[in-house]
Amino acid sequence: MIKFVDVSKTYPNGVQALKNVNLEIHDGEFVGIIGLSGAGKSTLLRSINKMISITSGQLYIDDVEISSIKGAELRLLRRSIGMIFQSFNLVKRMSVFNNVLTGRVAYHPTFKTVFGLFPKEDKLMALESLDTMGILEKAFTRADQLSGGQQQRVALARALTQRPKLILADEPVASLDPITTVQVMDDFHRINKNFGITVVANMHHVDLALKYATRIIGIKDGEVVYDGPSAHISDDTLVSIYGRSLRHDEVLGE
């Protein structure tokens, strides 16, 4: 469970990205975060695994207050949280397999990982994740040989190999074409349903968020202005989140 209590974030340049956010996200949910760019979606998401530190309030993950943790404790937290990025963030020159295996790095002492020594179970785990994502046959090709959709699946396999209880996705489909977008979102749906992994995703395309997420959080100027099931969201609510009617690039359309 993730719990935000009066969380605020002010950047050193004075920009206040989050203002007194209070939220509770339960295990197994699929949460879509929507809002204008610059509204604070990314800050909200990245504060959960402390890629960004909050400036006030408390943030609990499974009842552990994380704003004060650091070092080994922080790495342990991050190990249990998978993260997906807009531009996949793979090591392009490395094989798909080795990219996925990096999901296991935090499980072993440094002297082993530095020499690339992973136990066989880990290697199998990596390959199974690739199989789950349907790209096992690409395991030993270089990551940059793959299409965008395949690369994002490699990133998902990397996250799965961490054996996470939660996956954070920061605009996971923003660099993909419409067809691959749907495929990758289906993958997220499958992971959420079959493995019971909580998914929290920032979404640029509102209709995608409504279709795949079970719960929508709307952010405007760093404040949560909507929080509720995606089924009940109305056009008026969307206007209140965006401050205007949606532009056509904010809807994928099918």
Binding site: F97, G116, K120, K123, L124, L127, E128, L130, D131, L136, A139, F140
Partner: peptide, 16 residues
Amino acid sequence: MNRAEEALKRKPKRWV
């Protein structure tokens, strides 16, 4: 499991 094990055998052995 089997598929993964098979795939592991295909892994190019570079360490030698």
